[in-house]
Simulated assay, not measured.
Amino acid sequence: MTGFLLRFFIVAFGLWLASELVPGIDVQGVGTLLGAALLLGIVNAVVRPLLLILTLPITILTLGLFLLVINAAMLGLVAWMFDNFSIAGFGAALLGSIVVSLTAWLASYFIGPRGRFEVIVVRRR
């Protein structure tokens, strides 16, 4: 449960950061931000794998760059479901998905597979 909550707040932070950095992304209110983070997690767990399978040939042809388009589409889908969350266009969705992905990737460096902070101790002799 701790791992889920930690990753949830990381995605929420990534969405907030994207709304601050990327022009064209507007999130109004903390409730909308937290709801969008939860819905983005659900969409990424349910819809994204189906899209990955369906678009596998295009993804292979583009050497994986089409995954950025899929991530932008998932963010756009979440924005479409919320009234107080808007994305101006595909470019904003693409940049926003990159910000959210980089935030989650950087945070996952410090989080282990069980959702706990990992501390690595190196002892030199």
Rank of each mutant, 00 (worst) to 15 (best):
D26M: 13
A18V: 02
A93L: 04
F90Y: 14
A92Y: 03
E118M: 11
L77A: 13
A18D: 06
G29A: 09
G31M: 14
L33P: 06
A88Q: 14
L67K: 00
I87F: 07
F66S: 06
L67C: 01
V22S: 09
T32M: 11
I42C: 00
V43I: 13
G14N: 02
L56W: 11
G24D: 13
F90S: 08
G76Y: 09
F117W: 12
V47W: 07
A37T: 01
V121R: 13
D83F: 12
T2P: 03
V27G: 03
V43S: 08
A45L: 15
P57M: 12
V27A: 01
G29M: 08
L15S: 07
P49S: 11
G96H: 03
L33Q: 02
I98E: 02
G91R: 14
V11E: 05
R48G: 03
A104H: 01
I60L: 15
A37Y: 07
G41W: 07
V47Q: 05
L102F: 13
G89W: 10
A45N: 08
A79L: 09
A104D: 05
L33T: 08
I87Q: 00
T59L: 12
I42N: 02
F117I: 14
G35S: 12
F9C: 02
M1C: 11
E118Q: 13
R125Y: 09
F82C: 04
G112M: 00
S97K: 13
S86T: 15
F8A: 06
V30G: 03
R7G: 06
F8G: 00
A37V: 08
L95D: 01
T59C: 08
N44C: 04
G64Q: 04
G24F: 11
G89A: 12
I42A: 14
E118K: 13
I111H: 06
I42P: 04
V119M: 13
G64C: 07
A104M: 08
S97P: 03
G64T: 10
S97E: 00
L17A: 11
T2F: 14
I60E: 09
G41Y: 04
M1Y: 10
N71A: 10
R7W: 02
I60W: 12
D26P: 04
G14W: 08
T62K: 05
A104C: 01
F82E: 08
V119Y: 12
L5H: 07
V119G: 07
L33F: 04
I53H: 11
V27N: 04
R7T: 03
V11W: 05
L51Q: 04
L54A: 15
L38C: 07
L52H: 12
R116T: 10
Q28F: 07
I87A: 07
I53A: 14
L63N: 01
T62Y: 02
R125N: 09
M74F: 09
S97W: 06
A93S: 09
F117T: 10
V47I: 15
V122C: 10
F66L: 05
F4T: 04
T55D: 04
W16G: 07
P57A: 13
I25L: 15
F4L: 14
L38G: 12
G112Y: 02
L94P: 06
P23I: 11
L68F: 15
L39Q: 04
L5C: 08
S108M: 06
L40S: 00
V119R: 11
F13P: 01
T32Q: 07
T32G: 09
